[in-house]
Design a protein around this nucleic acid. Sequence first.
DNA 1: GCAAAAGTGTTCTCGGTACACCCATGG
DNA 2: CCATGGGTGTACCGAGAACACTTTTGC
Lengths: 230, 230
Amino acid sequence: MRGNLFAVAVDLVVLTVRDAELCALLVRRDTPPFTGRWGLPGGFVLPHEDLLDTATRRLSEETGLALHGHHLEQLASYAAPDRDPRGRVLTVGHIAIVPRPPEPIAGADASGTAWHPVAKLIDGAAADALLAFDHGRILADGVERAQSKLEYTTLAASFCPPEFTVTQLRHVYEAVWRRSLDPRNFHRKVTGAENFIEPTGETAIRDRGRPAQLYRRGTATLLHPPLLRP
Amino acid sequence: MRGNLFAVAVDLVVLTVRDAELCALLVRRDTPPFTGRWGLPGGFVLPHEDLLDTATRRLSEETGLALHGHHLEQLASYAAPDRDPRGRVLTVGHIAIVPRPPEPIAGADASGTAWHPVAKLIDGAAADALLAFDHGRILADGVERAQSKLEYTTLAASFCPPEFTVTQLRHVYEAVWRRSLDPRNFHRKVTGAENFIEPTGETAIRDRGRPAQLYRRGTATLLHPPLLRP
DNA sequence: GCAAAAGTGTTCTCGGTACACCCATGG
DNA sequence: CCATGGGTGTACCGAGAACACTTTTGC
């Protein structure tokens, strides 16, 4: 068909919120190229796999978390001729959103697998050079996608455990957007949005202050009306 | 590195507005597979090319239009194992926006190259089966992307010639969204948006009615505030 | 009772919609 | 002067921001 062929890989921007910070999962590379540098989890697409199959498989292999209910979507493809010193490799970036997982990461097949706050990886002056390959760019694109999808979809709930409070949900928005929001207006907006979250009837146990109502994810995927960044 | 390699192609959803309809450029295939069927223009990525290079080259080869100022962006990648009967082919879909071009299409290297209204290609019951490969899906994704980008970017101006009237711009919105808009409110919104369009000082010649002010594209790429679909 | 956090009500303002109205041209 | 389309003014309405206020718990 054509003489010039590509290896095709999938890379994952796996995002979660820990301690009020948006974090990405990185693996320390133990083989060339870029040995010793941090990079995105990922791997090559096998003969029978579609792209999301590969992404799902690698996510479970590297985090030990099966993808039940976790959000996973394609981001963009990267294929600059010189992006991999080994030869022509096209990678399809994906973003995955997971609730804060138990630690250490169970079942990970890479020894050096850790969560890193994205702020330092993106804002820094020489941020591009911190990660292997063009993973700094892919990470930045993934974070931007997540930030904008919080506005008009219910993606934020994917960062939360099955049952959560409105305040927890607000902390997700604040961590991803890196802005603080008015708790009172936020409360009204998310409880007013159609099928964004639905009350369980239970309340959360707290050390002090009024107990908060618990909610679970609703059926909506699009937000009407959207929650725009200030 | 890995035994399983892919051919990598680029496919183009080239959009324009003709006679108040959103149209896509299709080519009639004269080689297998899908001989005789319509498909998106596109081609394989050459060894030295990045994805946008291939897209730019194929756009100019198939439409005769150089990409000066035309909008071109990546859409998504498609790599289902059975999407091409010849073997494993990954294609990176792109969308290109062009002003209404002179006809017939000059310099096209494919004899059967024609504009088709997208409505019939997408709405129809068996719309998926009309085009070669998974091009029906790629086209639908491209149209959806264009529709949503009209809301929060200045993309609509890319459908217009260098100088245009507010009414022409409104016809773009109406064709892409397939909704009619209030001409008076539309006028105020687009002339009020920062750096969306700027007046040339000239007026358009009309057969009847008050002459319209001419505008050119402004410097903004994002729309503040956005123009939301009703 | 007091502190702390959840949740509600009220006011102001701004952007969207609907639509009446005026302007500039050809015939 | 009339038809036609370009462009402006205005009144209403709903959503967002700011913030005072009430509720429910632990100590």
